[in-house]
């Protein structure tokens, strides 16, 4: 009998069809405290990473933008202001809890009209070909079961000349920083998760999933293999996070 196909879930190997469900459990668990934890874990620096992402997106009034794994809507809120009434931002997330928190948060801040929340799987984006001027996926790609499939799906729905921006944890450039970062991720992070969100396991998964995510060069190659051109990346905070950008030819 043929072996079941597996993939990684943090450091564990799980059947491919199980990963999405287990990732969903993690995000159902952390959704309510997601923003607080993000600020706490990064010391607020995640806002600067996202700020740089928005700058490199080159978003303009009137454009259509897809914010995949948009979570609590940080990027969507900023894009909504940039594209204005003539544009549109689609806030997409596979996780219902995260999407609900994001949608409610945007509405509470008076951001509506040009924002559409959509529950969608990055691997099978439910949009016609050549729809968006720009796609962003911030801290979401590492949770996708089949990253190559997701990148091809993103390429399909981008307009020619449109750009994909992948903001994701990556590999620190210096060994010393890497060691400090490891200590922080595997000791302090689960502790903070337990303290603030009463959920150490989800934050342990976060640290493990970061280590299992492709490094800068590998992800760049994956984007090129999917069909993107002019791919480049920018290391941020010593390579803890990298922003990859590719263009649809």
């Amino acid at each position: 009998m043929k072996d079941r196909k597996t993939t990684h879930f943090g450091y564990q190997e799980v059947p491919v069809e199980e990963k999405a469900g287990r990732v969903a459990e993690v995000f159902h668990s952390v959704a309510a405290r997601y923003d607080v934890m993000n600020d706490l874990m990064s010391g607020g620096i995640h806002r600067l990473w996202k700020r740089f992402t928005i700058e490199l997106s080159g978003a303009r009034p009137g454009q259509k933008i897809l914010d995949i794994a948009g979570g609590t809507g940080d990027l969507t809120a900023r894009f909504s202001r940039i594209v204005g009434d003539s544009g549109q931002v689609v806030l997409a997330d596979i996780n219902e809890s995260m999407l609900r928190v994001g949608r409610d948060r945007l509405l509470d801040r008076g951001i509506a009209g040009n924002v559409v929340p959509v529950q969608a799987d990055a691997q099978y984006l439910p949009f016609p070909d050549n729809t968006f001027d720009c796609i962003t996926i911030a801290f979401g790609l590492r949770n996708v079961t089949d990253k190559d499939l997701a990148l091809r799906s993103m390429l399909r729905v981008l307009k020619p000349g449109g750009r994909l921006l992948v903001l994701e944890f990556s590999k620190p450039e210096s060994k010393l920083l890497g060691k400090v970062y490891d200590q922080y991720s595997f000791r302090l992070l689960p502790f903070m998760g337990k303290l603030v969100a009463n959920d150490a396991e989800s934050y342990r998964y976060l640290a493990e999933s970061i280590r299992m995510h492709p490094d800068q060069e590998t992800l760049k190659q994956m984007m090129e293999d999917a069909g993107f051109v002019d791919c480049e990346y920018h290391n941020m905070t010593g390579g803890i996070v990298a922003l990859h950008r590719g263009i649809k030819p």
């Binding site: 700020r51 740089f52 010593g238």
Partner: peptide, 13 residues
């Protein structure tokens, strides 16, 4: 090239 995080921090401030 310098780390974009610092520059983003300066711009934000």
């Amino acid at each position: 090239m310098s780390d974009p995080t610092y520059r983003a921090g300066f711009d934000a401030a």
